[in-house]
Each structure stands twice: as C-alpha cells, then as structure tokens.
C-alpha cells in the first residue's frame, strides 16, 4: 500500500504495461501483523471455549456414552446422569418465550417501522435498544416479584378451562395456587420479555429496508396501509422475520438468571408446563456448579458444551438467513 515502486523500463514506443508493485514498509508489516493477531486471538478464544468444555466434559461423556443425551435423571454419585429432561425443559421454556416474543415483537416492529409518527420513531428505536441493554437480573426481579403473581390466575384459568380436554394443560392439584408457581410457563413468559427487544430490533431493521418504490407503488394502486405491509413489507422482510425468531430462540435457550430465579428444579420429563417444576441446562449449571466436583462437574461441563453447540448452530443459521436480507454487518447491542 505504501510507496508504489515503478518497475520495468519506461518504454513509450512499445506501450508496455507498467507493472506496479508495492513493498510494504516495516511499519505496515507490523500494523497488519498486530491487527491480524488481535483478530486471530478472538478466533482462539472461541476455539478455547469449545476445547476446554470438551476436555472437561470428556470423562462424563465417556462414562455415560450416548446415555448422556437420553438419561433424564441427574445422579452423578450413583453413576447415572443425563441431560434429557434438561433439554426438554430448555425447549419448553424457549417455546413459551417465543409465543410471547414473536407476536408482540412482530407487531411492535411493524408499529415502529410503519405506523409510529415520524417524530416517535427514533426514540422508539432507542427504547428497544435500551430494553435489550437492561440486565437480565432486573428482568429476574420483575419476573419473580411482579409477573409471577399476575400470571398465576392466568395459568389457573387455562388449566381449568382447557385442562379437561387438553392433558398438556392439566395440573395435579388445581385448587392450590402453589402448584402453579415456579412453572415452565411463567419462566417462559418472563424469558419471552427478555428476548422481546432482540426479536423486535432485528425485525424492525429488516422491515425498514423494504424498498420505497414498491411501497409507493402499492399505495398508488390504492392499497390500504395494511395492504401495503402485507404485499410489500412482509414478503421483503420474510428472511428477517425467520432470522429474528431464531436469534430470539438462541437467546432464550441461553437465558440463565431469569429462569433460575423463577423455576423450582426437577429432573423429570414434565408434560405439564403449567405445573410447578422444570429445569433448563443453563439454570442447572448455575444451580449445581458450586456443589459439584469430579464426574458431576464434568457432567455440567458436558451440559454446557451441548448448550454452546446448540446456540452456535442456531445463531449461525440465523446469521445466514438474516445476512441474506441485508448487506453489511449491523450493530448488535
């Protein structure tokens, strides 16, 4: 890049092409090497995460074999432990979180990009970013001391009215309010509020990029605002919607503190998410790390490895889907 030296004899008659070569100065070599080593070091950190989790988890994985995935009990002292019930609980809470975050996030993203008055748009975008920056411990406080109390009656109502013909919503002792506390349902809704800003901001970003010409075309043909959104904004933003849902799921699966403070841990397959008791990988790690040693700790590291791989796959897929709809990287807060 520096001081291009012109090689080759200057022969004006033969019209020979000038050959331009660059000889980087020592300064530049140092600069490129330094910045490259910084970039490589982030690669190394990511690699180390995987390697250290894998090394640490190896004894547990070797002992349990495939049973590590299929066993639902967690009894490291007895030699049988696995993450099946944890996986199921993680999935269940992720599902409830998406049930909250996706519809509201979709509507809120449409509101910000299409309906809100122009003067309100920027403050609303800032608000969503701020909401994403609020620490999850504060969501945990809110979920435990506010949301749980208000959701108990909702859970009971669903259980009473739908539990008779849908066993999914059935609860063992529907008369006692304590059988509805600390459930996958409540933890899932709270997690949904945590991932709501993530989902909203990705969808809004993609909606705002729907081409102006097509929008105006739809309006000029007499479409109502919803008609324009349905025929232009949503088709153009489809990949962003899918990507937003997946990134939201990725965050919901890894959410620790909110889930840990709300649920009461349990090591069974619960097919009754309204009932008290469930567990996720992340909250299980947070709950057990201090009392675990030896093979139990290896099991926790194995669970962490599975969670790491899961979120990695989901987020890579989401990244591919979203990047197909937008050029360049965007700020992720």
């Amino acid at each position: 890049m520096s001081a291009p030296t012109i090689a080759g004899p200057p022969a004006p008659e033969t019209q020979q092409r000038r050959v331009l070569t660059t000889k980087p100065s020592a300064q530049d070599i140092t600069f490129v090497a330094a910045s490259r080593s910084a970039a490589v070091s982030t690669l190394i950190i990511m690699g180390l995460i995987g390697v250290f989790l894998a090394i640490g988890a190896w004894p547990a994985l070797k002992q349990q074999g495939f049973g590590f995935i299929t066993e639902s009990k967690w009894l490291p002292e007895a030699g049988t432990f696995g993450i099946a019930s944890l996986l199921w609980g993680t999935f269940l809470i992720g599902l409830f979180a998406l049930c909250v975050a996706v519809p509201i996030g979709f509507g809120a993203a449409l509101f910000i990009s299409e309906y809100a008055p122009r003067s309100l748009k920027k403050p609303l975008v800032t608000l969503v970013d701020l909401m994403a920056a609020v620490p999850s411990i504060i969501y945990a406080l809110w979920g435990l001391f506010f949301l749980q109390g208000h959701l108990l009656e909702v859970a009971r109502w669903i259980s009473v009215h739908f539990g008779s013909f849908l066993p999914f919503f059935r609860v063992d002792v529907p008369d006692s309010p304590s059988s509805f506390t600390s459930s996958a349902f409540i933890a899932g809704i709270a997690t949904g509020v945590v991932v709501l800003p993530t989902v909203t901001s990705i969808m809004r970003e993609v909606f705002a990029q729907a081409p102006i010409g097509e929008r105006e075309g739809a309006i000029a043909l007499g479409a109502t605002r919803w008609g324009m959104i349905r025929t232009v904004v949503i088709p153009f933003g489809r990949s962003g919607i899918v990507g937003g849902v997946m990134l939201g799921l990725g965050r919901a699966l890894g959410e620790t503190i909110v889930v840990y403070t709300i649920i009461s841990p349990m090591f069974e397959f619960t097919t009754h998410p309204l009932q008290s008791g469930t567990n996720t990988i992340a909250s299980h790690i947070a709950a057990r790390y201090s009392e675990s040693g030896g093979i139990a700790l290896a099991g926790l590291l194995g669970a962490g490895l599975v969670l790491f791989l899961f979120t990695l796959v989901i987020n890579t897929l989401a990244g591919v889907v979203v990047s197909r709809s937008r050029s360049g990287a965007a700020t992720e807060i």
Partner: peptide, 20 residues
Amino acid sequence: LVRSVVEAMSAVPTIVAGLF
C-alpha cells in the same frame, strides 16, 4: 471468517462464558 466467528461469539450464552 473472523467476522462470522465474532457474530457467533456474541451469541454464546453468558453462563457458558463463565463455565469456560
């Protein structure tokens, strides 16, 4: 490659970072 790895890194669950 680094860019996609950094993007993946932003999605690492924080509990996994602690565990690491």
